[in-house]
Amino acid sequence: MSPTKPIQTESDRGVRSGQAANLVGMPVATLRIWERRYGIVAPQTTASGQRLYSAQDIKRLKRLKALVESGYAIGSISRLDDAQLAALEAGRSAPFQGTAQGAAGAAQQELTLAIAGTAIAERIVEDAAELKRLGFRIGPTLAGLEALEALGQRAGDVLIVELSGLQDNVADRIVKAVRGAGYRAVAVVYAFGANSAAENLQLAGVRLYRRPANRCEARQMLRDLARDAGEGLLLPPGGGRQHRRFDERELKAMTELAQKVTCECPRHIVDLVLQLGAFETYSDNCSIETPADSLLHQLLGDISNQARHAFEMALERVAAGHHDATPS
């Protein structure tokens, strides 16, 4: 998608985000998350910075929402153009065929499904045929979030957590329990909750569902999780941060290696290490200054930390006289 396009005045007609969300039939928070994370539309802005959604924007949003409700993951369709979305919409009776990796792909490998919550576990275990079709096998069944936290390790490939109430402190506990554990997909099932807590979990890559009222809703949740797992993406890594291997004085000395090897790679690696370290610090500061997006900035800091650590290992190899800069 192209970046947001400025316009000169507010005379160009359009609707604001609240009205756009009402027309599409979704919460404003969801619209903002989709737009921020996936760039689903590029609404024009007025000179004062007010976003205005055109009729074409509304049409695209409605189409995306319909496809998500029919079984597609928003991340897998957000970059498709209108013609591609129309083609998917025409065939949405078979939703898994439209994604690059769907439930059929996930079913080729067995996925261990861990469940933290006895009530939802009973409902899911009853549907053995659907579990088998999607490639799931039931793994650990835990009493709830407390039991998951006490476990202290990954419980399976895919995780479902059941809650009676979803508050900000509970969302933080869930994120801490799953970040860095290597889950391929995580869902939270809840009865009541705060919008801020729900938004934080969505930013962390967690799917959210109200308690399923019937078997069809429970099956849809399982299909969504199977598709997510089949896309081959792990939940944001998180976990502990790696300490810096070199200070700035040592990094500056490393640039002299360029005189001893036949390329400029040492200097470029040093530049990358410095920039990644600076961005890690910047992201951590943003996490403090903008609490609403704290989880997003924590994730950016985690990724920067891991990338910096990998390049530091590469730099050590170069310093040791090895030309293979691939970290072991």
Rank of each mutant, 00 (worst) to 15 (best):
Q306D: 14
N214L: 08
A292T: 10
D224C: 05
G152T: 10
A292W: 11
E231C: 04
V270Y: 00
S48V: 06
G98E: 00
L315T: 03
L222M: 14
Q153I: 05
Q56P: 01
V24G: 03
D57F: 10
V15G: 00
E35T: 15
E312L: 12
G102E: 06
I120W: 08
G39Y: 07
S283T: 05
V170Y: 02
A194I: 00
T281E: 15
A29V: 11
S2K: 15
D293K: 06
L163R: 00
R133S: 05
P237T: 09
E280T: 05
A258L: 02
V188F: 08
A42W: 08
N285F: 07
E126N: 10
R37S: 06
G230Y: 05
Q259G: 03
G156H: 05
N200T: 03
R13V: 13
P236Y: 10
N305R: 01
E264L: 11
Q167R: 13
L67H: 04
A155N: 07
E126Q: 13
G135P: 02
A114N: 03
S70P: 01
Y53T: 07
A66Y: 01
L299H: 09
G71R: 04
H243E: 15
L300Q: 08
E264T: 14
R123F: 00
Q109K: 14
D271P: 00
Y190F: 15
L151M: 13
N285I: 10
C263W: 14
E89K: 04
L61G: 06
A292R: 12
S287A: 15
H309L: 02
I124G: 07
M221L: 15
A198Y: 01
R219D: 05
G18A: 10
V273I: 15
H268Q: 09
Q108T: 14
A218Q: 08
Q167T: 15
A258I: 04
K65H: 12
E162D: 08
N305P: 03
R223I: 07
V15S: 06
L85M: 00
M26H: 00
E35K: 08
Q101M: 11
F279W: 10
A191N: 13
L222F: 12
A197V: 05
F311S: 05
R184Y: 13
L272A: 14
D81V: 09
Y72V: 06
M221G: 01
Q202N: 12
A218S: 12
Q275V: 08
R137S: 12
P95E: 07
A94G: 08
K5R: 14
R227H: 04
E10I: 09
A213L: 14
A198R: 02
S93W: 12
T9R: 11
F192H: 13
A107Q: 09
Y282I: 06
P43C: 09
R32M: 06
V270W: 06
L145A: 07
S328V: 15
Y190M: 02
Q153P: 03
R79D: 13
S283M: 12
Q84C: 05
G71Q: 08
N195C: 07
R249N: 12
S78G: 04
A185C: 08
L31C: 00
L203Q: 09
